[in-house]
Design a protein around this nucleic acid. Sequence first.
RNA 1: GCCGAUGUAGCUCAGAGGUAGAGCAUUCGAUUCGUAAUCGAACGGUCGGCGGUUCAAAUCCGCUCAUCGGCUCCA
Length: 638
Amino acid sequence: MCYTDNDNRYNNSPMVSQLTQSPLQIANLEQLERIRHTCAHIMAMAVQILFPETKVTIGPTTDTGFYYDFDRPQPFTPEDLTKITKQMRFIIKANLPIIREEVTREEIKVEIEKLNELYKLEILDSIPEGETITRYYIGSPDGGRLPDVGEKLKAAFPEPSLIKPVKIPPTVSWWDLCAGPHINYTGEINPDAFTLESVAGAYWRGDETKAQLQRIYGTAWETPEQLKAYLKQQEEAKRRDHRKLGKELKLFSIQEGAGGGLVFWHPRGATMRYIIEDYWRKAHLDAGYELLYTPHIANLELWKTSGHLDFYRENMFDSMDIEQQAYQIKPMNCPFHVLTYKNDLHSYRELPLRWAELGTVYRYERSGVLHGLMRVRGFTQDDAHIFCLPTQIAGEILGVLNLTEKILSDFGFKDYEVNLSTRPDKSVGTDEGWELATNALDRALNTKGWDYLEDKGGGAFYGPKIDIKIKDAIGRTWQCSTIQVDFNLPERFDMEYVAADGSRQRPIMIHRAIFGSLERFYGILIENYAGDFPLWLAPIQVRLLPVSETQRPYGKAVVTMLKQSGYRVEIDCTGERLGKQIRNAELEKIPVVAIVGKREVETQTLSIRTRQQGDIGTMNITELKESLEEVLAKKTNI
RNA sequence: GCCGAUGUAGCUCAGAGGUAGAGCAUUCGAUUCGUAAUCGAACGGUCGGCGGUUCAAAUCCGCUCAUCGGCUCCA
């Protein structure tokens, strides 16, 4: 499991899908796809009108719009995007026809060569023999095509300005080699329902050894309302950004002085992590797991045996020298769990063994891919390995699915997308082994009653796997949990158990993680709740606000009492006025504040204000505790 | 790593060759206050780092570090 990129448990990348949910109901998805694809063409046309030296490459649609990759010596600036947008509106408003033409390989080749569009030539060469080749015109085919058009435009406009958008004479056209489909007229696009978003570097054909191109991203919708809704959703995502909230709520930091991708958990974040870990341990002990702690480094030989040095090297930090022996900081926990297993002789009667560890691993990630808590260089996996008999696989997998559901739903994630990935072309293990394991995963999912998508050939080379994605409060999906069968490590480490007949047999090894990485899961939690954590997770649950300093002694006594009952409570001793104290508590997103003034001291009560409901009235400590307990039991916000 | 952008006080940001600024936070003083900002003062900076150009650099140039948006979608 531990070697390849398609290994999701160990894939530390954000794995958030683009906003797959439309902000508004899409009336006609097929038409929208055409609109987006045509938008890409119109953008390319606009770019070549304004910047004729630019070469075109490809321009597909995305979940929210489109992009086009260009080859141009100078980078596009934000001002360029404004100009391009204006030029696109011209083209849209001109309502030019879009004409599909089937062409032969030979004739289109000549035309592309005439234009010196080398990338297009490469694309043409990659189209399989026998496939229909089409080109799409924007405007009349009689009009010629850029850069011929450039000449015509120069004739039409004696001093064609590259700053101002250029009006397209009806006789001018632009075309692109394209499979389509497209809309029929540019006017079908609402000029106020698209916008250009950003410029980014991208490699030709996604290959970093090839030319670096400039990609312009755009978003396009059926109506301006949809666009507005989409932009609002983007704003919402920005508002929830865990990096911003992490700083504002003093949860964690990543510091230049220490290095990128290394996380500092500050007291409030650390409190939450403690709660999460504590919950996780109890849940695992209840589910029949035992806990392990293993070292952070080990002799490099171990990583040779496990195969990581061969297959995972590019994600590993360099080894260090200790008394002439090479030691490696761990990028994975599994070899340690295997060594723990191998330290004893095991009988079939002991199986299954379920060993869990919050294991901190370090992986080299290229500086450009680091991203807040979502992609870091040091992180803690909620790792576990199950060693079992072949006959126990389905039962164990079902157990993992049940535990996963319990844990994820307690953290507020109740919608899942499940994938079952099967044997890839290159793999280890026997046919029977794969069939047995894959059937067991399938059976477990069916027993659980979960629908899933099968990703044929998408498994790791060492075994089939189940991945579970969760859906957050604004409809984004995140990959966290994964369950993987491993035929490789037991073989490499020559793991055994003693079977009923006294023979030595190979146990089945299952890797699984529910959060994936604590750092990443925490980042997702912050974004899911937008920093308004449910009471059971909130680092400060209750803050007492004395109306004046006179009430401090009473407030302190209440704090002591609540603390003794296990609540996370504090008192505001800033001496600020009540309004300011409330404002501060609101900004810190503290779920409950208890106001103590003269009245409360006299009646031995508290005036309660919650962040969700505002002022909810006066109660005594017992009543407060009761309502807190009720909310804590439900694991919701108050 | 690569392409582009951004780094100014603890935070959010202004300043664009000529004395380093604001609000919030912090500290001190006054105020003792009833459901989202009391008033005043003080403190706070090698303008990310290193080097260069210049009489003069936060500002221009080079390198470097970090952060942000991308680098999967394939005519």
